[in-house]
Amino acid sequence: MKILLILLLILQINSLKADEIFNLVKIPNLEVYKLNNLNGLKYLNAKKDFKIGIKNNIRCNKSNKQNLDNKFSLISKNLARYDADFLNRINLRFIVLCENLYVSEINTGGIPDHAKRTLILDLNFNEKYFERVMHHEIFHIIHNGFKVLFDEEIWSDLNDKTFKYAECSTCSNRLGLDLYLETNGFLTEYSKSIASEDMAEVYSFLMTDKINIENMANKDSILFNKVEYIKTRIDKILNF
């Protein structure tokens, strides 16, 4: 029995098959879900579990067909808000859909890869935040392509002088994604982790709850400056 299990494990390890999709996005075990979309996005889904990254630190499970079909309308509705021109500018083409996405054993809603023009999304991520997480991750792709435009030092200076971000996004226990009632310059607890996450939180709320966030920003000068910072720079990309 043990030998059989070892054999199965070896077969599993060796099941990394190069195919035409792997050749393009360097993620194994994917299949085409939907190609012909108006904005040029190409949706791929995991037909088997996969592991990628340094020491295979990123893993995700195959997507359940019914779950995928159910979530896809919400995903495509949100991503259809980005036109082909904008997506080309920010370098996003492939959306990989899978379940239970982990980076170094930390569950995450999405992983952007600017170089490979790919965004991996976890279909099972908390439904309460799922829609916003998509835009949050897209901001990271935008940020990766326009580092100078979205300057983290300038952004950090928008905060109260006594505030300090953590060393990295997972170095702190500031992980809450719920919108604060009292903002004090930050929309969520996660906003306080690092500057780029703070930017991504502001951007994602502007994409999903714009009027409410603008109203909140009118009563919070730090938040107001942050909202304006994001808006003006996104406009620059749009009018590039």
Binding site: I21, L24, G40, R93
Partner: peptide, 8 residues
Amino acid sequence: KIPLYIGE
């Protein structure tokens, strides 16, 4: 046929 490669 590999439609995924169109435009790539």
